[in-house]
């Protein structure tokens, strides 16, 4: 091993290049995005593409401004509301369902095929039926979102619950602790890393679910707005709404990661502590 002084000297000499590298690392994706936008803008102008084929970034920006802050926030709020309600319902139903599936062989044999059938059904095709059955209002939208988002939560949570080391379960049994405690104190915490990977996937699915629901039946929301705009050939503002959906998805995805880091730092891989 090298002595502390030499290693310190080496690291201070290496510092500038490391810093530069780290900065390049951070800037690279933004730079790529910028180049993409410039190429896109240039292509639209040089090829004189009509805006209903492919609007240029500047046209999208102009459309965004034209729609105005009030209208946007109304649509964004509506979509977020449905997304989060459906997502919340997925968690509320998904986790207890996972516990039922993990703890009983009979339950798992009975329910699992049904879950797979639900998951295999194209929700986009079922959405209009759901709206007809459930009527107008939030209920069908939240339900459609739930149907799309809940499956990964159930599957990952079951995997996590069953991934608990057998010896730890034996420890629990050797203490004479109840099944309920075994699940609460050992299995559920063990499922957290699995659960959070599913929660990240599911939040983006929930956004998709909300948009699908808004395509079918809604009077506001970004999904509704895209549908409405395209029917009026207002493609730039449809693109603007699409961009917002992407940003919302990314933000929520990131938020789930932050929540995991804040509340369950131990559940992250060691390098991310």
């Amino acid at each position: 091993m090298s002595s502390p002084t030499t290693s310190a000297a080496r690291s201070s000499r290496a510092m500038p290049t490391i810093k530069l590298k780290a900065q390049a690392d951070r800037l690279a994706p933004w730079l790529a995005l910028l180049v993409l936008l410039l190429v896109w803008e240039a292509a639209c102008r040089l090829l004189k593409l009509p805006s209903f084929v492919l609007p240029s970034p500047s046209a999208i920006l102009a459309a965004t401004q034209k729609v105005g802050f009030g209208a946007w926030s109304e649509h964004i709020f509506a979509t977020l509301r449905v997304t989060l309600m459906g997502y919340g319902l997925s968690i509320l139903i998904g986790i207890p369902l996972a516990i039922a599936l993990a703890s009983s062989r009979l339950m798992s044999r009975t329910l699992y095929p049904l879950l797979v059938i639900v998951q295999s059904t194209p929700i986009v095709a079922v959405a209009p039926i759901i709206v007809v059955v459930m009527g107008a209002g939030d209920l069908p939208r939240v339900f459609i979102t739930f149907l799309i988002a809940f499956f990964p939560i159930v599957v990952s949570c079951v995997t996590g619950l069953l991934a608990t080391p057998e010896e730890l379960v034996e420890l629990s049994r050797s203490l004479g602790a109840s099944k309920a405690r075994e699940y609460r104190n050992i299995r559920l915490p063990y499922a957290i890393p699995h659960l959070f990977s599913a929660l990240r996937i599911s939040i983006t699915l929930a956004v998709i679910g909300a948009v699908v629901a808004e395509f079918v039946a809604a009077e506001k929301g970004l999904g509704y707005f895209i549908n409405f705009s395209t029917s009026m050939f207002q493609v730039p503002q449809a693109f603007a709404a699409l961009m917002m959906l992407v940003v919302i998805s990314l933000a929520l995805f990131h938020l789930i990661g932050l929540l995991q880091k804040a509340f369950f730092p131990w559940s992250l891989p060691k390098a991310q502590h």
Partner: peptide
Amino acid sequence: GPRDEIGIVFQKPTLLPW
């Protein structure tokens, strides 16, 4: 059944990571 007089050490430490 399990009894209080017993303590068990397993092959793996099986500590709770949280």
